[in-house]
């Protein structure tokens, strides 16, 4: 079983202020990502800009007009992210292992990674029969529709029904 996790690196007051990683931290991050590639785990990774260039669209309920807000947002009430890494692993433990290996940038206070698992819709084999059977169903329904009006068929159909019921009744005896 292969599962996908998104490792979400949360924004901090440093990332919000655009304070870049030190060269050393930057290199450590590159090494880490290279390892992800080598292990065939990395699907994609992107860095995100601070909330100052972001926006929010808010509906208090589906009946309301949308409220559009522009950044920057306070990190207290908005869970902003600064980077995400999408990985493909076999177990939850493996995902956590990779999260724990992520190098922590120095002297930048709190560092937080969230692991969120993605919905998988690759269970194709489970549905192997589903799709063709839907085709079959449409074929059957086509018979239902068109034969419905034909009196001749209707009577024949009833006779099949009767004869079968008779057969069943006989068997029950």
């Amino acid at each position: 079983m292969i599962i996908r996790y998104m490792l979400i690196v949360k924004a901090s007051k440093y990332t919000e202020a655009g304070v870049r990683y030190s060269q050393e931290d930057q290199e450590a991050k590159t090494v880490y990502k290279r390892n992800l590639v080598k292990a065939n785990v990395l699907l994609t990774t992107e860095s995100l800009q601070p909330s100052a260039t972001g926006m929010k669209v808010l509906y208090s309920s589906h009946r309301d007009e949308p409220k559009v807000q522009v950044g920057p947002f306070s990190l207290d009430d908005t869970a902003w992210m600064t980077e995400y890494i999408l990985i493909d692993v076999e177990t939850e433990e493996e995902a956590l292992k990779w999260a724990l290996q992520m190098p922590v940038p120095k002297n930048r206070g709190k560092f937080e990674i969230e692991l969120q698992r993605l919905e998988e819709n690759l269970d194709v084999l489970e549905g192997t029969r589903e799709h063709p059977m839907e085709h079959d169903l449409k074929d059957l329904l086509s018979m239902l529709k068109i034969t419905g009006g034909a009196d001749k068929y209707e009577s024949r159909n009833n006779s099949v029904y009767r004869s079968n019921r008779t057969r069943m009744a006989k068997r029950n005896l």
Partner: peptide, 21 residues
Amino acid sequence: ATPSSIVELNRAVAIAMAFGP
């Protein structure tokens, strides 16, 4: 052999044809 809703739906139509809707 393989219980599933789509098989049941097919069965429902087949039964409708055989014994009545």
